[in-house]
Design a binder for these strands. Structure first.
Length: 619
RNA sequence: GUGCCCGUAGCUCAACUGGAUAGAGCAACGGCCUUCUAAGCCGUAGGUUACAGGUUCGAUUCCUGUCGGGUGCGCCA
């Protein structure tokens, strides 16, 4: 059996073939032959997704049928009876050409060359083209994925990308408000790195501002009384007490204000105290990141204070560019792009009338730094949706002022608020702010109770480590599996359920696959994939679409697409597992099913890892 | 007042950015375990996609308006 996959140059409708790679893929004698477009980097797989491949073919057929430059609109079929993929571009083309869509579809199909890719191509409805993939073609795709450490993921030209996320204010302890940015940002960073980009993770922490004067003043007090260590252990409390002192004692408040001035003036003594406080606060954050399994470290940190020296320069440069005007004593930029119904341009304050700077100033300086010093091509800001106006203004002004080139991708990846069961922002029973570390601990504790109940036979420390993976995974997955732009309801019971679209279900699905391999004994890890039964075909089809999902997540920054994919994969595997015995099968069938199971396991593990969720061999 | 986001099954959410009969999961009901983990699988039921218009071969998706919710809107971040 020979399987030939043509590889066309991406973005062109031509059939230019740039290279040939042969790979011996199976002991049974199957050789998967697939062609690559020009390899840009050594070892990088540059292969199209099935959707891209079909799009080019259909597009070429459309051109041949008299409809050039027409999008093929290829997508996975909405129902199994409509084949595996459908091309919907004919209807639109027929309208533009004022011809009968069915007739055009007929002509397109006649010009459509899907030899070795499709079994059957049919026209349905007003002009849909339904494509049924050939099992051997699917098998070859899976074989390629099995042979590749990155599961056949296409590696585009690496782009210098920054993901800015988490970014807590160091004056206080991290709370639930930081959870979404931290989780979503980390998943995005992982996915971008996985597809081969040069990713910088940036933790743009709030380490500057007037409240630090107050905190330093209180730090001096607690040190004098010898309580500093103890007090700093609970930053939330520390802040609260400092605030009380500030509000109640005018002498203390005065000292605090002096510290702000000294801090801004670069006074060495106060600076040292500030650094000490910042370091302690960062330790708290790092403990949370470690517990969450988030890839932020001290190296990722570049706080607001890093831009202090550049802020006056930003102001003078904006003035020199003729963008800055004084208004009511403040230095302001009026942006024509943002006007109210009366026609007034919206103001963006760059410098307060007292000379102080604002976060808009810092963000402008950061954009410029990221372009000039880091040469980033894309910066992703994973920040609460409520700041969308700020980012629109920031991006607009950055480009207008030449701080960022017009082709630099500046993206606000916004997300909604985390709500409680009552549909209101998530709080403690008494209405207080929920500390992030306490939320994580509770998740682990709840998972431990569940695991102990379901599987009491396991050793204590095994249950503890399962609980950590399940608890943290559940919290992350509950967040990541929903469209980030809307608010979402946080509910312990639904996220920790072992049935339904949850992390525990996916982790369990993984252990089911692993249990097969625990019992298998010897097997051929390079056996040929042969697709026969319906459940095998459905599973294979889904496995072959992993690259599509990953690419989509990398461009849209929507991790919920990956979650949906993994959930469907787990379901497809369960159906396959139910319908197709693996270990009791024989010969080539058994070997092939083991390959399907192996690829499922790797895909689940890789996908969950990209979401920052750990897998387990047993639960 | 105005900008942005949202309104989909009882509940929590999808719908690949304009495609076919709007899909999953919970919850409900009915089946399947001496056979690789039943934490599973199969099936039934559940909808005027807030409402009213418009655009077109085709609308949950785009446009206009109404109602309802969230959130932002010059010296906080």
């Amino acid at each position: 059996m020979f399987v030939l996959l043509a590889s066309e140059k991406t973005g062109r409708a031509s059939l230019a073939v740039a290279g040939l790679v042969f790979r011996k893929a199976g002991a049974a004698g199957t050789i998967a032959v697939y062609l690559f477009a020009q390899p840009r980097r050594r070892g990088a797989i540059d292969r199209m997704t099935i959707q891209q491949l079909l799009s080019l073919r259909v597009q070429a057929a459309l051109a041949a049928a008299g409809a050039p430059d027409t999008p093929a609109v290829v997508q996975a079929s909405s129902k199994p009876e409509f084949g595996d993929f459908q091309a919907n571009g004919v209807m639109g083309a027929a309208k533009a050409l004022k011809t009968n869509p069915r007739a055009l579809a007929q002509s397109v199909v006649e010009h459509l060359d899907l030899t070795d890719i499709a079994d059957k191509v049919e026209i349905a409805g007003p002009g849909f083209i339904n494509i049924h993939l050939a099992p051997a073609f699917l098998a070859a795709r899976l074989q390629a994925a099995l042979d590749d450490a990155a599961l056949g993921i296409r590696k585009p030209a690496a782009q210098k990308v920054m993901v800015e996320y988490s970014s807590p204010n160091l004056a206080k302890e991290m709370h639930v408000g930081h959870l979404r940015s931290t989780i979503i940002g980390d998943a995005i960073a992982r996915v971008l790195a996985f597809v081969g980009h040069d990713v910088t993770r940036c933790n743009h922490v709030g380490d500057w501002g007037t409240q630090f004067g107050m905190l330093v003043a209180y730090l001096v007090e607690t040190r004098q009384s010898g309580d500093a260590e103890l007090e700093l252990a609970d930053l939330e409390n520390f802040y609260r007490k400092a605030k009380v002192r500030f509000d109640e004692d005018p002498v203390f408040a005065d000292t605090a204000r002096q510290y702000v001035v000294r801090l801004q003036g670069g006074d060495a003594e106060v600076l040292a105290l500030w650094k000490q406080f910042v370091a302690v606060s960062m330790e708290h954050c790092q403990a949370v990141y470690d517990k969450l399994g988030v890839g932020l470290t001290l190296d990722s940190v570049r706080g607001e204070s890093a831009y202090n020296d550049d802020l006056p320069v930003v102001v003078s440069d904006l003035r020199a560019a003729g963008l800055l005007v004084e208004d009511q004593g403040a230095q302001v930029v009026f942006l024509d792009e943002f006007r109210n119904p009366e026609g007034d341009a919206q103001a963006m304050i760059i410098q307060k009338k007292d000379g102080g700077y604002l976060y808009a100033t810092t963000d402008l300086a950061a954009v410029r730094y990221r372009h000039r010093a880091l040469d980033l091509k894309r910066v992703i800001y994973v920040v609460d949706a409520r700041q969308s106006l700020h980012f629109q203004q920031l991006f607009t002004l950055s480009k207008k002022a030449g701080f960022a080139p017009t082709d630099m991708q500046l993206e606000h990846v916004a997300f909604g608020t985390m709500m409680g069961d009552d549909g209101k922002p998530f709080k403690t029973r008494s209405g207080g702010t929920v500390k992030l570390v306490e939320l994580i601990d509770e998740a682990i504790e709840r998972a431990y109770a569940l695991v102990s109940e379901k599987n009491p036979a396991l050793a204590e420390d095994t249950r503890r480590s399962i609980a950590a993976a399940v608890g943290v995974g559940a919290v992350k997955y509950a967040d990541l599996s929903k469209n980030r732009t809307s608010d979402y309801i946080f509910n312990w019971d639904t996220m920790l359920a072992f049935e339904g679209n949850t992390a525990p279900y996916l982790q369990y699905a993984y252990t089911r696959v692993q249990s097969v391999f625990r019992k298998v004994g010897d097997f051929d890890a390079s056996a040929a994939v042969v697709i026969d039964a319906a459940a095998e075909k459905q599973l294979a089809l889904h496995l072959a679409q992993f690259d599509e999902v990953i690419e989509s997540v990398a461009s849209s920054c929507q991790p919920h697409q990956l979650c949906a994919y993994l959930f469907t994969l787990a379901q497809q595997f369960s159906r396959f597992y139910e319908a197709c015995p693996i270990l009791s099968a024989e010969g080539a069938t058994r070997a092939s099913r083991l390959q399907l199971a192996a690829l499922t396991a790797r895909t689940l593990r890789t996908g969950l890892d990209l979401l920052g969720i750990a897998v387990l061999d047993e639960m």
